[in-house]
Design a protein around this nucleic acid. Structure first.
Lengths: 143, 143
DNA sequence: ACACTTCCCCCCACTTTTCCCCACTCCGCC
DNA sequence: GGCGGAGTGGGGAAAAGTGGGGGGAAGTGT
């Protein structure tokens, strides 16, 4: 089973509902997701299956560096567990819509173990720059 | 089992469908493929079997160099998992047709672990130029 | 405890896209 | 010359995305 791939431009309706691509729904099984906001103007969506590992890393990190508690707390405070309705849509809390600058359209991007949700314009400007040293490594990776 | 070899000129129909050569289909088993766009004006097609290794290397790359996230994200965003229909054709998303300048004809090129899909003219100009260099490199490889 | 409000989720309906299936052609091979 | 595998093209059924209305649960205040 491969990770999440591809990008999809979907509508965010007035109720704050966002339809996940059917292929993403299938590869997540139909358990729920965890929606968080971290350092970028985007939201991250983890299927519960992979979220467990993230949670473990968070706990481990706090044990090693207690001064990081505040950082982790602000992450968990802004997080939400979301479950798709029968039409495959998740409800994005109003506060998370605001921090991600989501309006009527959202770009749903597959990022291997997680899904990212972006404002389409912000995504374009965030991924615009091509870094030569990264490209060199990519050539090695892609055989 | 050998890698993918040979090149085939096939039609890209109005619906964006491209028939894979029957021999490629056979050597991939009939699981799906992953289609990506990287630094060249061409598309790369990986059978799922070999894609898993690529994905693992990508994850490793991000662990070592977190600042490469953007590069990997634009790669996965432009990727798609494709499954041949019963006639052995894959659907190439409109966005990927554009970045690879694919019109009505596509050149399907075997490239060992993966398959490359080119605009025929672009392929000629990309591979036609560096003849002397080719010879020098090949002498080293083929003893 | 009860009425009231609010919000969420289910259901229904519609549009668009996708993909499955059938039919046809071309070519090489028996 | 027919047969079979391969590539090509298009119609129709099924699925996916979108939008809105109503019922019921949860929370609030009286």
């Amino acid at each position: 089973m491969t990770g999440f791939l591809g990008s999809y431009l979907h509508q965010l309706d007035e109720k704050g509902r966002l339809a996940l691509p059917a292929s993403f729904r299938r590869s997540a099984g139909d358990a729920g997701f965890v929606l968080i906001h971290a350092y970028e103007p985007a939201l991250y969506l983890y299927p519960l299956r992979t979220w467990a590992a993230v949670e473990e890393r968070l706990a481990e990190f706090m044990r090693r560096q207690p001064e990081a508690r505040g950082t982790v707390l602000s992450l968990t405070a802004a997080a939400a567990e979301v479950i798709p309705d029968k039409q495959g849509r998740i409800l994005i809390p109003e506060r998370l819509q605001r921090v991600a600058s989501l309006d009527t359209e959202a770009l749903i991007v597959g990022a291997l173990e997680k899904i990212e949700i972006w404002n389409p314009e912000l995504f374009k400007s965030a991924t615009g720059e091509a870094k030569p040293e990264h490209e060199r490594i990519l050539r090695q990776i892609l055989v």
